[in-house]
């Protein structure tokens, strides 16, 4: 069971920007890159550091604590593909960005 939740207005995030959000109790990092919105968990799976403070380079985000790098498209940890950060679906409708949250009922 999943539902779409309103996150932000499309114009609230510039390209190459990132914004931490809390949606239905999920700490989410919304990223806009090359015109596409990506939503990933804001917690590094290593020690829980907030990825929102990390550095975004293309489609790769580097955790500020220990430099673990993740692909924002599929959540994969670049040094060990078995480790992933949760990735959420996104859609833009009428200038509004929505994030798909599993296990939430609207």
């Amino acid at each position: 069971m999943s539902s779409w939740f309103y996150a932000i207005g499309e114009n609230e995030l510039i390209d190459g920007g990132k914004m931490p959000l809390s949606l239905e109790g999920n700490k989410i990092l919304l990223i806009r890159q090359e015109g596409v919105f990506y939503a990933i968990s804001n917690k590094c799976p290593h020690m829980g550091c907030p990825l929102s403070r990390g550095i975004l380079d293309g489609h790769v985000i580097k955790c500020p604590c220990h430099d673990w790098q993740f692909d924002i498209r599929d959540g994969e940890f670049l040094s060990a593909r078995e480790i992933k950060i949760p990735v959420f679906g996104t859609k833009v409708s009428d200038g509004r960005v929505f994030v798909k949250i599993y296990g939430a009922v609207q």
């Binding site: 799976p45 290593h46 020690m47 829980g48 060990a80 078995e82 480790i83």
Partner: peptide, 9 residues
């Protein structure tokens, strides 16, 4: 924390 990381490996 470590358990969560090493298990999938």
């Amino acid at each position: 924390m470590y358990q969560r990381v090493v298990d999938p490996l």
